[in-house]
């Protein structure tokens, strides 16, 4: 068996043998689907009370993914835990003693986690969509409508990229506490506040999660961004790649 395959199997064993994996991913799915369902049910009952402009730019697809506001935090938690638990437990010393080729180690860990998150992210996104649309009733859209399938797939990609971004940052910060303390408030509050304030919006709309939102939108006017979903994807990928490269440099350079 080639070396890389063996390291991948080893990383898979690691990821499936700790409880935090199940907890964080299950939370991401349940919270996203559940909260989206609540939003959709509320929207359906209040739709007639919405303003004319709001009704005109109503994005049923995005509404059925709105629970990701909280669900994404669990995805970030997964990314943080997968990487930083190596450092907080001291496991990193065993890991690097077993696989001293650090680039292989990092790539294998990220690949295994990415595959897992992609699967869970896609299930979450599709489940949230179908549950949400069922609740939206007459305001719902079909998966066959223009741009809808892309947006639902985009939901899964969005969650995956966010987890990857968190993994890259965790390789840089190495401490779970620090990673949580920076990433959680950032994605839950700061990013949204900066985008909400007109003075900072021009810059804040290029933050990873804000760019990623275009992925899940079908009605561009609902977001009012100067770029479309594919540019949004590129921006988010750029952030993620930058975080992973930073993490790779730190892993290569620093003592374990």
């Amino acid at each position: 068996m080639p070396h890389t395959t063996r390291v991948l199997r080893s990383e898979w064993t690691k990821i499936r043998s700790v409880r935090s994996t199940l907890w964080t991913l299950a939370t991401a799915l349940v919270v996203t689907v559940g909260l989206s369902a609540v939003f959709c049910a509320l929207t359906a009952s209040q739709f007639d009370n919405l303003g004319e402009r709001q009704q005109a730019t109503f994005d049923a697809t995005q509404t059925s993914f709105s629970g990701s506001v909280l669900g994404q935090l669990a995805m970030i938690a997964f990314g943080v835990m997968v990487v930083s638990s190596e450092y907080s437990t001291g496991m990193i010393r065993s890991s690097l003693a077993a696989v001293p080729q650090r680039t292989v180690f990092l790539a294998a860990k990220i690949f295994v986690a990415t595959m897992l998150v992609l699967v869970v992210g896609m299930i979450t996104s599709f489940l949230a969509f179908f549950v949400g649309q069922a609740l939206l009733g007459e305001n719902s859209v079909s998966i066959q409508d223009e741009g809808v399938l892309r947006a639902v797939l985009g939901g899964g990609v969005y969650m995956t990229l966010l987890a990857l971004f968190a993994m890259g940052i965790s390789f840089v910060l190495r401490s779970p506490l620090l990673a949580f303390a920076i990433l959680m408030p950032f994605f839950f509050l700061i990013s949204n506040i900066l985008t909400g304030v007109s003075a900072t919006k021009d810059y804040a709309q290029y933050l990873p999660d804000q760019a990623g939102k275009t992925l899940t939108a079908v009605v561009p006017e609902s977001l009012n961004r100067p770029y479309g979903p594919y540019e949004g994807l590129l921006i988010m990928v750029a952030w993620t790649v930058a975080a992973l490269i930073a993490g790779w440099i730190v892993l290569k350079r620093r003592d374990a």
Partner: peptide, 14 residues
């Protein structure tokens, strides 16, 4: 140098 939440067997397995 062990993850406290991973069983002894799985630690050695990985």
């Amino acid at each position: 140098a062990v993850h406290g939440g991973r069983s002894a067997y799985n630690h050695l397995l990985c």
